[in-house]
Nucleic acid binder design. Structure first.
Lengths: 247, 247
DNA sequence: TTTTGTTAGTGTTATCTTTACACTTACTTA
DNA sequence: TAAGTAAGTGTAAAGATAACACTAACAAAA
Protein backbone atom coordinates (compact mmCIF):
# COMPACT_ATOMS: atom_id res chain seq x y z
CA UNK A 1 0.00 0.00 0.00
CA UNK A 2 0.98 3.55 -0.42
CA UNK A 3 2.37 5.98 2.10
CA UNK A 4 0.26 7.08 5.06
CA UNK A 5 0.10 10.76 5.83
CA UNK A 6 0.96 11.24 9.50
CA UNK A 7 -1.18 14.35 9.88
CA UNK A 8 -4.40 13.20 8.24
CA UNK A 9 -6.89 10.63 9.38
CA UNK A 10 -10.48 9.53 8.90
CA UNK A 11 -12.78 8.28 11.65
CA UNK A 12 -16.09 6.49 11.26
CA UNK A 13 -18.97 6.84 13.67
CA UNK A 14 -21.15 3.82 12.98
CA UNK A 15 -24.61 4.11 14.44
CA UNK A 16 -26.42 0.81 14.89
CA UNK A 17 -30.06 0.42 15.77
CA UNK A 18 -30.77 -2.53 17.98
CA UNK A 19 -34.40 -3.22 17.21
CA UNK A 20 -34.67 -5.81 19.97
CA UNK A 21 -33.32 -3.63 22.73
CA UNK A 22 -34.76 -0.47 21.23
CA UNK A 23 -31.44 1.26 21.59
CA UNK A 24 -29.13 3.31 19.46
CA UNK A 25 -25.55 2.12 19.68
CA UNK A 26 -22.16 2.95 18.25
CA UNK A 27 -19.38 0.69 17.13
CA UNK A 28 -16.08 1.15 18.95
CA UNK A 29 -12.64 -0.31 18.69
CA UNK A 30 -10.93 -1.29 21.90
CA UNK A 31 -7.24 -0.75 22.54
CA UNK A 32 -5.22 -1.80 25.55
CA UNK A 33 -3.17 1.25 26.29
CA UNK A 34 -4.73 1.98 29.66
CA UNK A 35 -4.53 -1.34 31.50
CA UNK A 36 -6.31 -0.02 34.57
CA UNK A 37 -9.72 -1.61 35.09
CA UNK A 38 -11.14 1.78 36.02
CA UNK A 39 -9.94 3.55 32.93
CA UNK A 40 -13.56 4.01 31.83
CA UNK A 41 -13.88 4.37 28.10
CA UNK A 42 -10.41 5.76 27.53
CA UNK A 43 -9.47 2.65 25.57
CA UNK A 44 -12.39 3.00 23.19
CA UNK A 45 -12.20 4.87 19.90
CA UNK A 46 -14.03 4.97 16.61
CA UNK A 47 -12.67 2.87 13.76
CA UNK A 48 -10.26 5.11 11.92
CA UNK A 49 -6.88 5.35 10.29
CA UNK A 50 -4.38 7.65 8.71
CA UNK A 51 -5.12 8.54 5.11
CA UNK A 52 -2.94 7.14 2.32
CA UNK A 53 -1.42 9.66 -0.05
CA UNK A 54 -3.13 8.36 -3.17
CA UNK A 55 -6.66 7.91 -1.88
CA UNK A 56 -9.47 10.40 -1.51
CA UNK A 57 -11.02 10.98 1.89
CA UNK A 58 -14.08 8.97 0.96
CA UNK A 59 -11.98 6.10 -0.32
CA UNK A 60 -9.99 6.18 2.84
CA UNK A 61 -13.09 6.03 5.01
CA UNK A 62 -14.52 3.07 3.11
CA UNK A 63 -11.19 1.27 3.18
CA UNK A 64 -10.79 1.73 6.90
CA UNK A 65 -14.29 0.59 7.58
CA UNK A 66 -13.77 -2.55 5.56
CA UNK A 67 -10.39 -3.30 7.08
CA UNK A 68 -11.43 -2.81 10.64
CA UNK A 69 -15.01 -4.03 10.63
CA UNK A 70 -15.57 -5.92 7.39
CA UNK A 71 -18.52 -3.65 6.65
CA UNK A 72 -19.10 -2.66 3.06
CA UNK A 73 -22.01 -1.48 0.96
CA UNK A 74 -22.97 0.96 3.62
CA UNK A 75 -23.27 4.64 3.07
CA UNK A 76 -20.79 6.89 4.83
CA UNK A 77 -21.38 10.59 5.14
CA UNK A 78 -18.63 13.08 5.83
CA UNK A 79 -19.87 15.59 8.37
CA UNK A 80 -16.94 17.52 9.87
CA UNK A 81 -13.19 17.89 10.28
CA UNK A 82 -11.65 18.02 13.74
CA UNK A 83 -8.33 19.72 14.07
CA UNK A 84 -7.61 20.95 17.55
CA UNK A 85 -3.83 20.57 17.99
CA UNK A 86 -4.60 19.11 21.44
CA UNK A 87 -6.93 16.38 20.16
CA UNK A 88 -4.47 13.77 21.40
CA UNK A 89 -5.01 14.07 25.10
CA UNK A 90 -2.57 11.61 26.66
CA UNK A 91 1.07 10.73 26.02
CA UNK A 92 0.05 7.08 26.00
CA UNK A 93 -2.26 7.74 23.09
CA UNK A 94 0.46 9.38 21.06
CA UNK A 95 2.86 6.53 21.84
CA UNK A 96 0.24 3.96 20.88
CA UNK A 97 -0.38 5.74 17.59
CA UNK A 98 3.29 6.02 16.77
CA UNK A 99 3.82 2.34 17.47
CA UNK A 100 0.69 1.35 15.60
CA UNK A 101 1.63 3.19 12.44
CA UNK A 102 5.39 3.12 12.77
CA UNK A 103 5.45 6.87 12.18
CA UNK A 104 6.25 9.98 14.13
CA UNK A 105 2.87 11.48 15.01
CA UNK A 106 2.47 15.11 15.94
CA UNK A 107 -0.75 16.75 15.12
CA UNK A 108 -3.49 14.87 13.33
CA UNK A 109 -6.52 16.41 11.68
CA UNK A 110 -9.30 13.91 11.30
CA UNK A 111 -12.14 13.93 8.83
CA UNK A 112 -15.16 12.32 10.45
CA UNK A 113 -17.86 10.25 8.75
CA UNK A 114 -20.98 8.66 10.06
CA UNK A 115 -23.04 5.71 8.87
CA UNK A 116 -26.18 3.92 9.90
CA UNK A 117 -26.67 0.17 9.99
CA UNK A 118 -29.03 -2.21 11.65
CA UNK A 119 -27.91 -4.67 14.24
CA UNK A 120 -29.48 -8.06 13.80
CA UNK A 121 -28.68 -11.74 13.42
CA UNK A 122 -27.59 -11.67 9.81
CA UNK A 123 -25.82 -8.37 10.11
CA UNK A 124 -22.08 -8.84 9.67
CA UNK A 125 -21.27 -7.90 13.21
CA UNK A 126 -21.30 -11.43 14.57
CA UNK A 127 -18.35 -12.38 12.41
CA UNK A 128 -16.82 -8.94 12.52
CA UNK A 129 -16.97 -8.29 16.14
CA UNK A 130 -13.60 -9.72 16.84
CA UNK A 131 -12.06 -9.22 20.23
CA UNK A 132 -11.39 -5.55 19.54
CA UNK A 133 -14.69 -4.36 18.21
CA UNK A 134 -17.97 -3.91 20.00
CA UNK A 135 -21.25 -2.08 20.22
CA UNK A 136 -21.86 0.24 23.11
CA UNK A 137 -24.97 2.09 24.00
CA UNK A 138 -24.86 5.70 22.94
CA UNK A 139 -25.76 6.95 26.40
CA UNK A 140 -22.81 5.16 27.92
CA UNK A 141 -20.30 6.50 25.45
CA UNK A 142 -18.73 9.21 27.54
CA UNK A 143 -15.03 9.88 27.95
CA UNK A 144 -13.92 8.09 24.84
CA UNK A 145 -10.33 8.27 23.57
CA UNK A 146 -8.90 11.43 22.02
CA UNK A 147 -11.71 13.90 21.26
CA UNK A 148 -14.03 11.10 20.21
CA UNK A 149 -16.76 12.03 22.66
CA UNK A 150 -16.89 15.45 21.06
CA UNK A 151 -16.94 13.83 17.64
CA UNK A 152 -19.85 11.69 18.80
CA UNK A 153 -21.81 14.73 19.91
CA UNK A 154 -21.25 16.45 16.60
CA UNK A 155 -22.08 13.33 14.61
CA UNK A 156 -25.37 13.05 16.39
CA UNK A 157 -26.23 16.65 15.67
CA UNK A 158 -25.39 16.08 12.01
CA UNK A 159 -27.48 12.93 11.93
CA UNK A 160 -30.46 14.69 13.42
CA UNK A 161 -30.21 17.54 10.97
CA UNK A 162 -29.87 15.20 8.05
CA UNK A 163 -32.79 13.17 9.26
CA UNK A 164 -34.97 16.24 9.48
CA UNK A 165 -33.94 17.37 6.03
CA UNK A 166 -34.46 13.79 4.92
CA UNK A 167 -31.19 13.62 3.11
CA UNK A 168 -30.69 10.44 4.89
CA UNK A 169 -30.31 6.75 4.71
CA UNK A 170 -32.19 6.24 7.94
CA UNK A 171 -33.99 3.25 6.49
CA UNK A 172 -30.72 1.37 6.59
CA UNK A 173 -31.42 1.05 10.26
CA UNK A 174 -34.57 -0.98 9.92
CA UNK A 175 -35.04 -4.56 8.81
CA UNK A 176 -36.26 -4.92 5.21
CA UNK A 177 -39.74 -5.55 6.53
CA UNK A 178 -40.65 -3.31 9.39
CA UNK A 179 -43.67 -2.20 11.36
CA UNK A 180 -44.78 1.37 11.84
CA UNK A 181 -43.98 0.98 15.49
CA UNK A 182 -40.37 0.18 14.66
CA UNK A 183 -40.24 3.12 12.29
CA UNK A 184 -41.57 5.46 14.93
CA UNK A 185 -39.12 4.14 17.52
CA UNK A 186 -36.27 4.76 15.17
CA UNK A 187 -37.23 8.40 14.74
CA UNK A 188 -37.71 8.76 18.45
CA UNK A 189 -34.34 7.25 19.26
CA UNK A 190 -32.46 9.40 16.81
CA UNK A 191 -34.26 12.64 17.48
CA UNK A 192 -34.59 12.04 21.18
CA UNK A 193 -38.26 12.91 21.42
CA UNK A 194 -41.63 11.18 21.41
CA UNK A 195 -44.43 11.45 18.86
CA UNK A 196 -48.14 10.86 18.96
CA UNK A 197 -48.90 7.48 17.39
CA UNK A 198 -51.92 8.56 15.40
CA UNK A 199 -50.36 11.71 14.07
CA UNK A 200 -47.22 9.86 13.16
CA UNK A 201 -49.20 7.30 11.19
CA UNK A 202 -51.22 9.98 9.48
CA UNK A 203 -48.00 11.55 8.30
CA UNK A 204 -46.50 8.26 7.21
CA UNK A 205 -49.67 7.55 5.30
CA UNK A 206 -48.79 10.43 2.98
CA UNK A 207 -45.27 9.18 2.27
CA UNK A 208 -45.81 7.01 -0.74
CA UNK A 209 -42.32 5.54 -0.43
CA UNK A 210 -43.32 3.58 2.65
CA UNK A 211 -45.35 0.78 1.17
CA UNK A 212 -47.39 -1.84 2.99
CA UNK A 213 -46.62 -5.45 2.13
CA UNK A 214 -49.83 -7.46 2.33
CA UNK A 215 -48.19 -9.36 5.12
CA UNK A 216 -48.40 -9.32 8.91
CA UNK A 217 -46.13 -10.14 11.78
CA UNK A 218 -46.62 -13.44 13.49
CA UNK A 219 -45.53 -15.04 16.71
CA UNK A 220 -45.96 -11.83 18.65
CA UNK A 221 -47.84 -11.66 21.91
CA UNK A 222 -50.24 -9.00 20.73
CA UNK A 223 -52.22 -8.01 17.69
CA UNK A 224 -49.87 -8.60 14.77
CA UNK A 225 -48.82 -5.48 12.91
CA UNK A 226 -48.77 -4.83 9.18
CA UNK A 227 -45.30 -5.00 7.66
CA UNK A 228 -43.95 -2.27 5.41
CA UNK A 229 -40.99 -1.81 3.15
CA UNK A 230 -39.06 1.25 2.03
CA UNK A 231 -39.12 2.07 -1.68
CA UNK A 232 -35.85 3.72 -2.69
CA UNK A 233 -36.98 4.89 -6.11
CA UNK A 234 -40.16 6.49 -4.86
CA UNK A 235 -38.14 8.12 -2.10
CA UNK A 236 -35.70 9.68 -4.54
CA UNK A 237 -38.56 10.93 -6.66
CA UNK A 238 -40.31 12.47 -3.69
CA UNK A 239 -37.18 14.39 -2.69
CA UNK A 240 -37.25 16.45 -5.88
CA UNK A 241 -40.21 18.49 -4.76
CA UNK A 242 -39.07 20.03 -1.52
CA UNK A 243 -37.46 23.45 -1.63
CA UNK A 244 -40.13 25.24 0.39
CA UNK A 245 -39.48 27.02 3.60
CA UNK A 246 -37.39 30.02 4.14
CA UNK A 247 -36.96 31.79 7.44
CA UNK B 1 5.53 31.75 12.96
CA UNK B 2 5.31 28.05 13.34
CA UNK B 3 5.72 25.36 10.73
CA UNK B 4 3.18 25.00 7.95
CA UNK B 5 1.83 21.55 7.24
CA UNK B 6 2.25 20.88 3.50
CA UNK B 7 -0.76 18.58 3.31
CA UNK B 8 -3.35 20.63 5.16
CA UNK B 9 -5.00 23.85 4.18
CA UNK B 10 -8.03 26.00 4.88
CA UNK B 11 -10.03 27.92 2.30
CA UNK B 12 -12.59 30.64 2.90
CA UNK B 13 -15.60 31.23 0.70
CA UNK B 14 -16.69 34.76 1.52
CA UNK B 15 -20.16 35.57 0.31
CA UNK B 16 -20.90 39.25 -0.04
CA UNK B 17 -24.28 40.76 -0.65
CA UNK B 18 -24.21 43.81 -2.83
CA UNK B 19 -27.38 45.59 -1.80
CA UNK B 20 -27.04 48.15 -4.56
CA UNK B 21 -26.63 45.72 -7.41
CA UNK B 22 -28.86 43.14 -5.78
CA UNK B 23 -26.26 40.48 -6.35
CA UNK B 24 -24.56 37.77 -4.36
CA UNK B 25 -20.80 37.81 -4.86
CA UNK B 26 -17.74 35.97 -3.67
CA UNK B 27 -14.33 37.23 -2.76
CA UNK B 28 -11.46 35.81 -4.81
CA UNK B 29 -7.73 36.14 -4.82
CA UNK B 30 -6.02 36.59 -8.15
CA UNK B 31 -2.74 34.92 -9.05
CA UNK B 32 -0.73 35.38 -12.21
CA UNK B 33 0.23 31.85 -13.07
CA UNK B 34 -1.70 31.67 -16.32
CA UNK B 35 -0.64 34.79 -18.20
CA UNK B 36 -2.95 34.11 -21.15
CA UNK B 37 -5.73 36.66 -21.46
CA UNK B 38 -8.17 33.88 -22.22
CA UNK B 39 -7.37 31.81 -19.20
CA UNK B 40 -10.85 32.50 -17.84
CA UNK B 41 -10.99 32.19 -14.09
CA UNK B 42 -8.09 29.79 -13.74
CA UNK B 43 -6.11 32.44 -11.88
CA UNK B 44 -8.82 32.97 -9.30
CA UNK B 45 -8.99 31.11 -6.02
CA UNK B 46 -10.53 31.53 -2.60
CA UNK B 47 -8.41 33.08 0.14
CA UNK B 48 -6.69 30.16 1.81
CA UNK B 49 -3.43 28.90 3.21
CA UNK B 50 -1.65 25.93 4.64
CA UNK B 51 -2.38 25.26 8.29
CA UNK B 52 0.31 25.89 10.91
CA UNK B 53 1.13 23.00 13.19
CA UNK B 54 0.13 24.71 16.41
CA UNK B 55 -3.17 26.24 15.37
CA UNK B 56 -6.63 24.74 15.22
CA UNK B 57 -8.51 24.71 11.95
CA UNK B 58 -10.75 27.54 13.06
CA UNK B 59 -7.78 29.61 14.17
CA UNK B 60 -6.14 28.97 10.87
CA UNK B 61 -9.19 30.07 8.92
CA UNK B 62 -9.49 33.31 10.89
CA UNK B 63 -5.78 34.01 10.58
CA UNK B 64 -5.82 33.49 6.84
CA UNK B 65 -8.83 35.66 6.39
CA UNK B 66 -7.26 38.45 8.34
CA UNK B 67 -3.90 38.17 6.59
CA UNK B 68 -5.30 38.05 3.09
CA UNK B 69 -8.30 40.30 3.35
CA UNK B 70 -8.04 42.23 6.58
CA UNK B 71 -11.48 40.99 7.56
CA UNK B 72 -12.08 40.18 11.19
CA UNK B 73 -15.04 39.92 13.51
CA UNK B 74 -16.90 37.93 10.97
CA UNK B 75 -18.28 34.51 11.57
CA UNK B 76 -16.73 31.63 9.64
CA UNK B 77 -18.45 28.29 9.42
CA UNK B 78 -16.65 25.08 8.55
CA UNK B 79 -18.77 23.11 6.12
CA UNK B 80 -16.68 20.39 4.46
CA UNK B 81 -13.26 18.89 3.79
CA UNK B 82 -12.07 18.35 0.24
CA UNK B 83 -9.46 15.71 -0.31
CA UNK B 84 -9.39 14.35 -3.81
CA UNK B 85 -5.74 13.57 -4.52
CA UNK B 86 -6.24 15.22 -7.92
CA UNK B 87 -7.53 18.51 -6.53
CA UNK B 88 -4.50 20.28 -7.94
CA UNK B 89 -5.35 20.21 -11.61
CA UNK B 90 -2.41 21.81 -13.35
CA UNK B 91 1.37 21.53 -13.00
CA UNK B 92 1.54 25.29 -12.94
CA UNK B 93 -0.66 25.34 -9.86
CA UNK B 94 1.57 22.93 -8.00
CA UNK B 95 4.64 24.91 -8.97
CA UNK B 96 3.03 28.14 -7.86
CA UNK B 97 2.11 26.61 -4.51
CA UNK B 98 5.58 25.22 -3.96
CA UNK B 99 7.16 28.56 -4.72
CA UNK B 100 4.62 30.43 -2.65
CA UNK B 101 5.16 28.34 0.47
CA UNK B 102 8.73 27.26 -0.13
CA UNK B 103 7.67 23.67 0.49
CA UNK B 104 7.34 20.50 -1.50
CA UNK B 105 3.60 20.12 -2.12
CA UNK B 106 2.07 16.79 -2.99
CA UNK B 107 -1.44 16.22 -1.91
CA UNK B 108 -3.35 18.83 0.05
CA UNK B 109 -6.58 18.28 1.92
CA UNK B 110 -8.42 21.51 2.46
CA UNK B 111 -10.96 22.34 5.12
CA UNK B 112 -13.44 24.80 3.72
CA UNK B 113 -15.24 27.58 5.56
CA UNK B 114 -17.81 30.07 4.46
CA UNK B 115 -18.78 33.48 5.77
CA UNK B 116 -21.28 36.16 4.95
CA UNK B 117 -20.60 39.88 4.87
CA UNK B 118 -22.22 42.90 3.36
CA UNK B 119 -20.59 44.92 0.68
CA UNK B 120 -21.00 48.63 1.20
CA UNK B 121 -19.08 51.87 1.47
CA UNK B 122 -17.78 51.42 4.97
CA UNK B 123 -17.13 47.74 4.55
CA UNK B 124 -13.41 47.03 4.67
CA UNK B 125 -13.27 46.02 1.06
CA UNK B 126 -12.26 49.41 -0.29
CA UNK B 127 -9.03 49.35 1.70
CA UNK B 128 -8.66 45.59 1.53
CA UNK B 129 -9.23 45.06 -2.06
CA UNK B 130 -5.62 45.33 -2.98
CA UNK B 131 -4.55 44.46 -6.47
CA UNK B 132 -5.00 40.75 -5.80
CA UNK B 133 -8.41 40.61 -4.23
CA UNK B 134 -11.78 41.20 -5.77
CA UNK B 135 -15.48 40.48 -5.75
CA UNK B 136 -16.97 38.50 -8.57
CA UNK B 137 -20.55 37.71 -9.22
CA UNK B 138 -21.47 34.24 -8.15
CA UNK B 139 -22.95 33.37 -11.52
CA UNK B 140 -19.71 34.19 -13.27
CA UNK B 141 -17.56 32.10 -10.97
CA UNK B 142 -17.05 29.07 -13.15
CA UNK B 143 -13.76 27.30 -13.79
CA UNK B 144 -11.95 28.62 -10.79
CA UNK B 145 -8.52 27.32 -9.78
CA UNK B 146 -8.04 23.85 -8.27
CA UNK B 147 -11.40 22.35 -7.31
CA UNK B 148 -12.66 25.73 -6.14
CA UNK B 149 -15.70 25.70 -8.38
CA UNK B 150 -16.77 22.48 -6.74
CA UNK B 151 -16.09 23.99 -3.34
CA UNK B 152 -18.26 26.94 -4.32
CA UNK B 153 -21.14 24.65 -5.26
CA UNK B 154 -20.92 22.81 -1.98
CA UNK B 155 -20.61 26.00 0.04
CA UNK B 156 -23.75 27.30 -1.51
CA UNK B 157 -25.65 24.15 -0.69
CA UNK B 158 -24.41 24.37 2.89
CA UNK B 159 -25.41 28.01 3.08
CA UNK B 160 -28.90 27.28 1.81
CA UNK B 161 -29.37 24.45 4.28
CA UNK B 162 -28.12 26.54 7.14
CA UNK B 163 -30.34 29.40 6.12
CA UNK B 164 -33.39 27.15 6.10
CA UNK B 165 -32.52 25.71 9.49
CA UNK B 166 -31.82 29.26 10.59
CA UNK B 167 -28.54 28.42 12.18
CA UNK B 168 -27.21 31.28 10.33
CA UNK B 169 -25.68 34.65 10.45
CA UNK B 170 -27.57 35.78 7.38
CA UNK B 171 -28.27 39.14 8.93
CA UNK B 172 -24.58 39.93 8.60
CA UNK B 173 -25.41 40.52 4.98
CA UNK B 174 -27.75 43.41 5.57
CA UNK B 175 -27.01 46.93 6.71
CA UNK B 176 -27.82 47.56 10.38
CA UNK B 177 -31.01 49.28 9.33
CA UNK B 178 -32.75 47.48 6.52
CA UNK B 179 -36.09 47.40 4.78
CA UNK B 180 -38.29 44.35 4.39
CA UNK B 181 -37.65 44.55 0.68
CA UNK B 182 -33.90 44.15 1.25
CA UNK B 183 -34.55 41.28 3.61
CA UNK B 184 -36.71 39.50 1.08
CA UNK B 185 -34.16 40.05 -1.68
CA UNK B 186 -31.47 38.53 0.47
CA UNK B 187 -33.48 35.36 0.97
CA UNK B 188 -34.31 35.23 -2.69
CA UNK B 189 -30.71 35.67 -3.77
CA UNK B 190 -29.40 32.99 -1.45
CA UNK B 191 -32.15 30.46 -1.98
CA UNK B 192 -32.51 31.20 -5.66
CA UNK B 193 -36.29 31.51 -5.63
CA UNK B 194 -38.94 34.20 -5.38
CA UNK B 195 -41.53 34.75 -2.65
CA UNK B 196 -44.87 36.46 -2.49
CA UNK B 197 -44.44 39.85 -0.87
CA UNK B 198 -47.52 39.73 1.33
CA UNK B 199 -46.91 36.20 2.56
CA UNK B 200 -43.31 37.02 3.24
CA UNK B 201 -44.23 40.02 5.33
CA UNK B 202 -46.88 38.07 7.18
CA UNK B 203 -44.24 35.56 8.17
CA UNK B 204 -41.74 38.21 9.15
CA UNK B 205 -44.42 39.80 11.27
CA UNK B 206 -44.29 36.73 13.49
CA UNK B 207 -40.52 36.86 13.97
CA UNK B 208 -40.17 39.02 17.02
CA UNK B 209 -36.42 39.36 16.44
CA UNK B 210 -36.97 41.60 13.43
CA UNK B 211 -37.91 44.87 15.04
CA UNK B 212 -39.18 48.01 13.37
CA UNK B 213 -37.29 51.19 14.17
CA UNK B 214 -39.71 54.10 14.19
CA UNK B 215 -37.76 55.47 11.30
CA UNK B 216 -38.21 55.57 7.53
CA UNK B 217 -35.98 55.73 4.53
CA UNK B 218 -35.53 59.08 2.88
CA UNK B 219 -34.20 60.36 -0.39
CA UNK B 220 -35.69 57.49 -2.31
CA UNK B 221 -37.73 58.02 -5.44
CA UNK B 222 -40.75 56.18 -4.14
CA UNK B 223 -42.77 55.74 -0.96
CA UNK B 224 -40.17 55.50 1.81
CA UNK B 225 -40.04 52.16 3.59
CA UNK B 226 -39.96 51.43 7.31
CA UNK B 227 -36.53 50.49 8.58
CA UNK B 228 -35.96 47.42 10.72
CA UNK B 229 -33.13 46.02 12.78
CA UNK B 230 -32.16 42.49 13.76
CA UNK B 231 -32.22 41.67 17.46
CA UNK B 232 -29.54 39.07 18.24
CA UNK B 233 -30.75 38.24 21.73
CA UNK B 234 -34.34 37.72 20.71
CA UNK B 235 -33.12 35.60 17.82
CA UNK B 236 -31.12 33.31 20.08
CA UNK B 237 -34.05 32.95 22.39
CA UNK B 238 -36.40 32.08 19.55
CA UNK B 239 -34.09 29.35 18.32
CA UNK B 240 -34.61 27.35 21.50
CA UNK B 241 -38.13 26.37 20.57
CA UNK B 242 -37.68 24.62 17.27
CA UNK B 243 -37.20 20.86 17.34
CA UNK B 244 -40.45 20.03 15.51
CA UNK B 245 -40.51 18.19 12.28
CA UNK B 246 -39.50 14.68 11.69
CA UNK B 247 -39.84 12.85 8.39
C1' DT C 1 -47.59 71.72 -11.52
C1' DT C 2 -48.62 67.65 -13.42
C1' DT C 3 -47.38 63.31 -14.94
C1' DT C 4 -44.63 59.23 -14.67
C1' DG C 5 -42.15 55.75 -12.52
C1' DT C 6 -41.11 53.20 -8.56
C1' DT C 7 -41.50 50.71 -4.37
C1' DA C 8 -44.36 50.42 0.16
C1' DG C 9 -47.91 48.61 2.32
C1' DT C 10 -52.13 46.09 3.20
C1' DG C 11 -56.57 41.45 3.95
C1' DT C 12 -59.31 37.70 2.68
C1' DT C 13 -60.38 33.23 1.47
C1' DA C 14 -59.61 28.38 0.55
C1' DT C 15 -56.77 24.64 1.45
C1' DC C 16 -53.71 22.03 3.98
C1' DT C 17 -51.16 20.82 8.20
C1' DT C 18 -50.73 20.19 12.96
C1' DT C 19 -52.12 18.94 17.42
C1' DA C 20 -54.57 16.81 21.11
C1' DC C 21 -57.03 13.09 22.56
C1' DA C 22 -59.27 7.33 24.04
C1' DC C 23 -61.07 3.21 22.90
C1' DT C 24 -61.50 -1.50 20.65
C1' DT C 25 -59.02 -5.50 18.38
C1' DA C 26 -56.01 -9.54 17.98
C1' DC C 27 -52.70 -12.08 19.48
C1' DT C 28 -49.63 -14.89 23.29
C1' DT C 29 -48.76 -16.54 27.77
C1' DA C 30 -49.90 -17.71 32.37
C1' DT D 1 -60.22 -17.84 30.33
C1' DA D 2 -57.97 -13.92 32.10
C1' DA D 3 -54.11 -10.77 31.78
C1' DG D 4 -50.89 -8.41 29.17
C1' DT D 5 -49.40 -6.08 25.09
C1' DA D 6 -49.06 -3.47 20.98
C1' DA D 7 -52.15 -2.52 16.72
C1' DG D 8 -55.16 0.23 14.70
C1' DT D 9 -58.45 3.89 14.07
C1' DG D 10 -61.29 9.55 13.61
C1' DT D 11 -62.47 14.10 14.73
C1' DA D 12 -62.40 18.78 15.73
C1' DA D 13 -59.94 23.09 16.65
C1' DA D 14 -56.09 25.90 15.64
C1' DG D 15 -52.57 27.25 12.82
C1' DA D 16 -49.88 27.65 8.47
C1' DT D 17 -49.67 28.29 3.64
C1' DA D 18 -50.82 29.99 -0.92
C1' DA D 19 -52.93 32.74 -4.23
C1' DC D 20 -54.40 37.08 -5.39
C1' DA D 21 -54.66 43.34 -6.71
C1' DC D 22 -55.03 47.67 -5.41
C1' DT D 23 -53.81 52.39 -3.17
C1' DA D 24 -50.13 55.49 -1.04
C1' DA D 25 -45.95 58.23 -0.98
C1' DC D 26 -42.12 59.90 -2.76
C1' DA D 27 -38.48 61.84 -6.61
C1' DA D 28 -37.62 63.02 -11.11
C1' DA D 29 -38.91 64.29 -15.54
C1' DA D 30 -41.87 66.71 -18.46
Amino acid sequence: MSVLNPSLSVDCVIFGLDTKEQALKILVYERDIFPDENSGNKNLKFPGSLVADDESLDESAYRVLKELTGLKNICLKQFRAFGDPARIKYDEEREWSEKHYGLKIDRVVTIAYYALIRIDEQNPDQKLIKDKLRWINIDEADNLAFDHSYILTKSREALQQDLILQNVMAFELLPKKFTLHQLQSMYELILGSKFDKRNFRKKIGKAEYIVPLGEKQNGVAHKPAMLYRFDHKKFERSKEGIRNFFI
